[in-house]
C-alpha cells in the first residue's frame, strides 16, 4: 500500500467519522451530543476565553512533576529488578499490586494524606504511572541477551562501562516505551483526580458536564486528545532522535 493510499484512507475514515457524528448530533440535539459544526465555533470561543488553556497548563505542569518522578524512580528500579534477582523478588509483588490498583479508589485516601493541591495530584499521577514505567524497564533489562554482556566482558569492559555502553542502549527502547505507556496512565490519573476534587482541567470537564449544551464539554475533550496524542508522538520522536535504533513498533499499545 502506498503512502498516498494510506493517507487517503486515513482522511476518508476521519471524514466519515465526522459525518456520522454530525448526523448523530443533529438527531440527538445539542444537549445530548453537540454536532462538530457547533463544536468548532464553541472551541474557538473557548480558546480565546482563556480558561481552558490556563487550567490545562496548570494541570499539565503538576502531571509532569508526578510523571517525571515516576520515570526517575521507576526506570532505575525496573532496571535493577531486571538485573538483580533479590531486588526483583522483594519488589515485584508490590509493583504488580500498584499496577492493578485503581487510582480512583486511592483518591479519597490521598486527599486525607496530601490535601487537594499540588501534592495530591502529583501523588496520584506518580502511583498510576510508576508501575508501568517500572515493569517496562524491568522487561527490557531482563530481555538483554547475556551474550552481548559476555562479549563486552570478554573485551574486559568495566561494570560502569558495560552499563553505560551496553545495558543502557539496549534498555533505551524499553524506557521510551515505558514512558509512553506511563504517560497514557498519568494523563488518565490526572483527569480522574481532578474530576474527583473538582479542580483544574478535570474539574472544568466535570462542571461543564452539568451545562445544557455539550459543545463546551466536547471542546475540552478535544483539547485533551490533542495534548495526549501530541505528547505521545513527541516521546516517540525523542526516542528516535536519541536512539535511532528505537523501533517504532515498540510503541505503547
Amino acid at each position: 500500500m502506498t503512502k498516498s493510499h494510506i493517507l487517503f484512507l486515513n482522511v476518508t475514515g476521519i471524514v466519515m467519522f465526522l459525518l456520522l457524528w454530525e448526523v448523530g448530533g443533529r438527531i440527538a440535539g445539542e444537549n445530548l451530543l453537540a454536532a462538530p459544526s457547533i463544536v468548532v465555533f464553541e472551541y474557538i470561543r473557548l480558546l480565546f476565553a482563556g480558561d481552558m488553556l490556563r487550567e490545562l497548563v496548570g494541570s499539565l505542569r503538576q502531571m509532569f512533576v508526578g510523571f517525571g518522578l515516576a520515570c526517575a524512580i521507576g526506570m532505575p528500579m525496573g532496571a535493577l529488578m531486571g538485573r538483580i534477582r533479590l531486588v526483583d523478588a522483594l519488589v515485584h509483588p508490590w509493583v504488580s499490586m500498584v499496577v492493578v490498583t485503581s487510582a480512583a479508589a486511592l483518591a479519597p485516601i490521598f486527599i486525607l494524606m496530601f490535601g487537594t493541591g499540588f501534592e495530591f495530584r502529583v501523588a496520584i499521577v506518580f502511583v498510576s504511572s510508576f508501575g508501568y514505567v517500572t515493569l517496562t524497564a524491568y522487561h527490557g533489562a531482563r530481555g538483554i541477551d547475556p551474550k552481548i554482556i559476555d562479549v563486552a566482558r570478554s573485551y574486559s569492559t568495566g561494570p560502569v562501562e558495560t552499563y553505560r555502553k551496553v545495558i543502557l542502549p539496549a534498555l533505551f527502547p524499553y524506557l521510551i516505551t515505558g514512558a509512553r505507556l506511563g504517560l497514557v496512565h498519568a494523563t488518565r490519573a490526572m483527569v480522574m483526580a481532578e474530576m474527583f476534587v473538582l479542580v483544574g482541567y478535570g474539574g472544568l470537564i466535570f462542571q461543564t458536564g452539568q451545562d445544557l449544551s455539550t459543545a463546551p464539554l466536547i471542546s475540552y475533550l478535544v483539547t485533551l486528545m490533542f495534548v495526549s496524542v501530541g505528547a505521545n508522538m513527541g516521546l516517540g520522536w525523542i526516542g528516535r532522535q536519541l536512539a535511532p535504533w528505537y523501533d517504532s513498533k515498540m510503541s505503547a499499545g
Binding site: N31, L32, L33, A104, V184, T187, R188, M190, V191, M192, M195, G202, I205, F206, T208, G209, Q210, T214, L217, Y220, L221, L224, M225, S228, V229, N232
Partner: peptide, 14 residues
C-alpha cells in the same frame, strides 16, 4: 487518547 473517565459527564447524560 481521551482518558475514559472524562466521558463520565456524557455517560451521565446518556
Amino acid at each position: 487518547a481521551v482518558p475514559s473517565v472524562a466521558f463520565v459527564p456524557f455517560l451521565i447524560l446518556w
